[in-house]
């Protein structure tokens, strides 16, 4: 599955491998990172749930832009993800 054209992104400064075309959510999930934000009230960890852009559970901050849906956002080389 590791293609020659694979690249890396940084998640809280840690490199995570990405296959071309993968979403941020898929790349993080594949790397064993299952949560990247916590809820407002209960501080509950959240990651992928519906996987197709409906539930807004997987909101992620990339290169300083908050509230992108990780399941819909394709990863780009050099992306920096910050989790909370």
């Amino acid at each position: 599955m590791s293609g020659a054209q694979g690249f890396e992104i940084l998640v809280d400064g840690r490199p995570v491998p990405v296959e071309p075309g993968q979403t941020l959510g898929a790349a993080l999930h594949a790397a064993g990172i299952r949560t990247w934000r916590t809820t407002r009230f209960g501080g509950r960890p959240r990651g992928l749930f519906c996987g197709i852009g409906v539930c807004f559970d997987c909101l992620i901050t990339v290169n300083g832009t908050a509230n992108l849906r990780a399941c819909l956002t394709e990863a780009h080389p050099g992306d920096e993800v910050t989790t909370s």
Binding site: M1, E19, G21, Q22, T23, A26, A27, H29, A30, R34, T35, R44, P45, R46, G47, L48, F49, C50, G51, I52, D57, C71
Partner: peptide
């Protein structure tokens, strides 16, 4: 996917069946 609430359904690792299928089909994960 239609999902019904149940205790623990918001734990990381609980996903919709369609979401699991989408990860596999679209991202090979």
């Amino acid at each position: 996917d239609r999902v019904l609430p149940f205790p623990g359904w918001d734990l990381p690792g609980v996903m919709t069946a369609g979401g699991v299928q989408a990860l596999l089909k679209g991202d090979l994960v």
